[in-house]
Design a protein around this nucleic acid. Sequence first.
DNA 1: GTGCTTGTTGGCCA
DNA 2: GTGGCCAACAAGCA
Length: 274
Amino acid sequence: MPELAEVEFFRRRWAEAATGERVVRVEAHDRPRLFHGVKPAAVARALENKRLRSSATAAKQMLFRFGSDAWLGVHLGMSGELRVEAPGYAPGRHDHLVVFTARHALVFEDPRMFGRIQLHVGARAPDWWTGIAPAVLSPSFTVAAVADFLRRRGRAPIKAVLLMQERFPGVGNWMADEILWRAAIHPRRPAGSLTPAETRALWKECRWVARSALRVIAGRGGRRPADLNTGIPATWLFHHRWERAGRDPRTGTPLRREQIGGRTTAWSPARQKP
DNA sequence: GTGCTTGTTGGCCA
DNA sequence: GTGGCCAACAAGCA
């Protein structure tokens, strides 16, 4: 589920509830798939008795700093969520990591287990974190950098290229479709075939969608995830792309859906020509 | 039962 | 070495 703005939404839930609070206990399922290179018991040992000091989001990753030296990396995969429960909470089947403070239970839930938990102990943030590509909203995300990347990935469909985290960190399936629809670019166009004007439009819409999604999704406080996307206006492709017989909210014409770049892709043939 | 699903990775091939 | 494609991972839902 989670892309850039949803990830930020989930980070804020934990952060707003428990920043400054001390960890009293950690419960973790033994799921090697989720806990990359670390035993759940080691995570517990590293976090216990430390305060949640700060946190940050980059691409689809989150990093929570406990005390001065324990860093918890969280990736939500397809079906992961972060929740906040009461301190007496009894973890359910899919609650693979629960961090208890005196006042809260911070829950990592992931039914499909495509997510990832990482632990790093040290004075500085881990390499995998500092190596994440510069954000779409950062100054180094320039038209020139995008153009260069499209040239190198010239033969791949632009839809597949937008999903590459090394250049478009945080962009996932729905954001990619939204960006292409706004830029009026057909998802199957080879990345190298975009004109300079189209490349600029793509760059601009990447930034617009990222900024707007952060505003309407992440800026919603600790509401239920079911309400997560209700802040997105009906004028976005977002609300129509999975509808049976969905229609382009601008033209009223039918949308199409096909597998492109291995992912189901929705686009508006009236706006996005091959 | 069937056929999907807002993600990532590794293996294969050109 | 580089780039592109695809299956696999697992659970739930219609």
